[in-house]
Structures are given as C-alpha cells and as structure tokens.
Nucleic acid binder design. Sequence first.
RNA 1: GCGCCCGUGGCUCAACGGAUAGAGCAUCGGACUUCUAAUCCGAGGGUUGCAGGUUCGAUUCCUGCCGGGCGCACCA
Length: 564
Amino acid sequence: MRQKLWKRLSRFLEVYLMKKYLETAISNALKTLDLLDIKGYKVEVPPEGFGDYSTNVAFFVSKRMRMSPLKAAEVIGEKLLSDPRVERISVDGPGFINIILSQEAFSEALFQTLNNRYYWRIKRPAAQKNIQIEFASVNPTGPFTVGHGRQAVIGDILAEVMRARGLHVEKEMYLNDAGRQIQLLGESVWIRYQQLLGKKVELEDTHYQGGYLVEMAEELIKEVGETYLDRSEKETRRFFRDYVLDRMVQTMKASMDKLGVSFDSFFSERTLVESGAVDRVLKTLRDKGLVTDRDGAVWFKVSAFEDESDKVLVRSDGTFTYFMTDIAYHLNKFERGFDYVIDIWGADHLGHIPRMRAAMKALGIPESFFNVMVHQYVNLKKGNEIVKMSTRRGEFYTLDELMEIVGVDATRYFFAMFDPDTHMLFDIDLARTKSAENPVFYVQYAHARICSIFRNAVEKGICHSTAEDVDYSLLQSDEERKLIREITSFPEVLERVAGDYKVSRITNFLEELASCFHIFYNKHKVIDRNHMKMSEARVGLCMVIKNLLADGLALLGVSAPESM
RNA sequence: GCGCCCGUGGCUCAACGGAUAGAGCAUCGGACUUCUAAUCCGAGGGUUGCAGGUUCGAUUCCUGCCGGGCGCACCA
C-alpha cells in the first residue's frame, strides 16, 4: 500500500512540500532547455481561481529563448506536464504558468505532515552556527516599559524560530549596573527616604521622579528604620545604590518571567569593569593608536572607520562611558565563541550603531559578527491621547501593568504581530476590552473548535489512529486543498523569519490558517456518521491543523486552549 | 542641516518586483432544531503622501519633494 511506504520513508526523508517540489521540477525543466543558470524566478500562490501554484519563470527566460514570455511559458509548461504530480497547467496573463497538482500529491503531503508532527523543524542544518541574541538590556533604573516588552517578545520568538531552524541560539540580558544612572537612582531613593522621615531635601532634575521609588523608600523604612539618616555619606551612598539595584534587578527578572521570557544568561556591566576587562580593551585601543586625549577625556577615533565624529570613552572625571563598556562587552561576546550576535535595540539607540561598528573593526572582529535589529517605538493610546514614554519623568505604563490589563497571551501576540519597523500604536482601551477584537482569540478559537470536534469524534467512535488506511484523496474541495497547501508552507515561513527577523510572519500565517479552517468548518461537516470514510480523512486534516496551531502559538509563547 | 525608519479605505495593520492591493475594527444586510455564532456569507468604502525614473509589470527598487518618529552627548 502506497501510504505504508510513505510512512516508512517519511522517517528518513524530508517531508514532501509541494512548493519546494515544484521549484525542483522547474529547475529540472530548465536543465533540459540548457537554462539552468537562470535565477530569480519564483513559485507562488496565485490569486483565487488560477490554480494551486504559479510561476513567473517565463519572464526570466523569454529573452534567452528568443520568444515572448507567453510562448516560453507554453514550452516550459509542456515540460512540467510530464511530471506525475502535475495534473494540469494553464498559461495566463502575460506569461504566468499556473499549475494544478494531482489529488495524489495533496494526500501525500497531508499524510506526511500528519506523520511528522515537527516537519517544520530542521534536525541537521548544513552548517552549525553559534548565535547570541541580546535583548531587554537597559539601565535597571525603573520597571520595564512596554517598549522593552516589544523587544523581549521579538527576541524570545526569534530565538525559538532560529532553534527550530537548527541553529544554536543563546538569549542574554545585559545589565547596565555600573554607570552614573545607577548612582542617581540610589540618590533618588535616598532623598525619598529622607523626605519620608521628615527631612527637608528635594530631588533635582537629574534624579528619577517615579512614584515607584517612593514605594521602595517606604518599604526600606520598614526594613531598616531610620538607621541611614545619620551614617557617613560614602557608606550611605553605596548602601542605597546596592539596595536599589538589587531590588530593580529582581523586579525586572520577575517581569520577564511573567512575560514568559527566559534567558540563558544575564551579564553584568559591573563585573566587566571590576575584572579589568574594560581597562584591557582601552589599552588595546591605545596601543593601536586609536584613542586621543582631549579636554581631559579619552576619545575613540570613530572617524578612522566610519563617517561619524569621535566619541568619548573615558570622561574627564575618570568614569567610563556606556560606549566604552559596551565595546568590552562585545569583545567578551566574541571571545566566548559566538559566530554572530544579534542585538535588539530601540530606535533611540540608532546613533550607537556606527560607533560600535567602528570599534569592532578596530578590534579586528569580522564584520558579520555584530548585527543590530532596531525596532521602532511603541506608542500608547489612552482615550484620544497618545502617551509618550519617559522613564526619567516617571510617566509610563509599565510592562507589568500592560500584562495585568490585557493578559500575557494578548501582550505577546500583539507585540509579535507588528513589523518591528512600524511605529505601532497600542490602544490601551481597545486592548482592555477583552473581546473578539483581539486576533489572538481568533487563532485560539480555531484550536479550541478542533478540540471540540475531536471530543465529538471520540463519542462517535471516529479516530485517526489507523491513519494508514484512511483515504486522504477524498479531500478534494477547494477549502481542503487550500488548507493542505497552507500547512505545507509553514517551513518556508520560518525560514524567512530566520532570515529577515520579521516574526510577524508567524502571526500572519496563523491567522490565515485559522481563517481557512473557519471557512472550511462552516462549509463542511467533519464528523458525519453517514460518511465514515470522509470523516476519518477530515479528522486527519484537522489533526494536522490543530497541531500546527498549537505549535505555532507555542513558538509565540501563547497558549492554545482546548476550550474557550 | 545630515543620517536611519515610517506614510496603504474612517481606525489599526497585511501584501516573496507580479495577475482584480488584502484582513480586522467601525457602518449596513444576511446565516445557529446540525462538530462552540469569540464563527461564516454579502455590501459600501482606495489615484498605496506627491512628482518623476528603471521594466513586460512598481505599494515594493532608484531620484527629488511633502508629512511624522528617532538619532547626530563627557545619556544610555
């Protein structure tokens, strides 16, 4: 039996993906025409009514074949027709070849995806790469804002996708726990502490104004009372800095936990300074003659490598700039053996990129090593008002508040669904209304619906456990063929995400899959006692869809409820 | 001023250089004695910011404008 053979083979072979298969078929056809070097053509899904797949290859070969695209399409189409999986072709428009695949081709594809649940994973990649993605790295001076949520979700999902594509990926958060901002943060709490205990001291403009620091000071008073009202300034400063820092880091880790983001490592800027790693890098740069001393500060010659002005590494008061420690940090990453790193930064870090690139060049690190993915800001809308974020002024919605209001599923899904380049507008009131407006429900509902079908199937005694004897070629309707085509396209979606980092392709895919399913569901009955053969085949189809919805949502870190 | 990103129905967003630019929300009208109506079907709504260029073909690529965001720190 044919399906038994597939099942045996499918353990060893890559799953038969219809589009990939056609690409090979076209390439073979070109070979017979001595046109193998032609590149750039595509196989894609045509508009409704033009067949299963289409290719624009004729436009690319017409010149070489010295005929019109239309004529070339006919010649190539004729060759494709000899393929047993190709049932019909037609040449339309200015020269598109539209292809209809045989029913056999569809049932084979479905059968194989049914028997290889993780057919979209790559087990053995061509080249094993060691990659690090760094995100959600900030001054631990205040709770995470929704902007950090956006990059955390993107980074987390991207790591999952790259792992599914067979790459080794580590997720890291960098803690900027050494700089002057931390000092200011400590002072801010110290002042709040004194104010609460009746002293007349005021915050300055450079201090952090957020109310969360008042709360922290209140809690501190409960813990230590008035002990720090009359200690030495030096001791007090250090105490407040360390206390606040520890509290902030705990809070931030808790937020990430809540968001479902786990890190493989946390890296402290302070350890970099204290270990002398920063001094070493500075010396290296100095030995290479790439630093200058001017106005009491130490400058790095960015202009020797990039079209940018030189930047300060060591301030005139002797402290390191963020730029300085970041160079040491990236050298450290390189020395840890990563093939390349991807830093996910907000748009406000744009200016940091050229100078970092210059520093990498100065240290002889290969150009492909340092990669930055920039995402645009998240704007929040409340009522008719756009709320701008500012950590310093203490005006923001925190990530925790957002998760509290809309839930973790919606938070993650929402951040995943927008292209990182868009200045997304997060409508708080809209998100607050827990209703169908949220696309996450649409996808989850499709999953729950299938689960419900299965409960019904069990009651009626229909199951898919004897998959080999099921006749999947019964699934001939447009809706069913479209679903199968959709299913086989998922590996390509992930491949593209791993390439261009646009995780929104996954939500787009899931919404499309869910939509195809809902349409199918409304038109066809899955469980039908009068048509047991058909029911079995449809249960198989639904099983693949259910797995894919669940696995796709899992990739996003969103739950897939069995009932809603 | 210079650099990066973005301008797509009323709103939020899609669209691998392809065919008739798609969804959702909002508006209007239909579909539950049948596996969950958080669904489906239909209608209206667009010169894809403007002007050129490249080509068989441009929302997509190039150039110039216009509008918005961000950056051009001894902040991070």
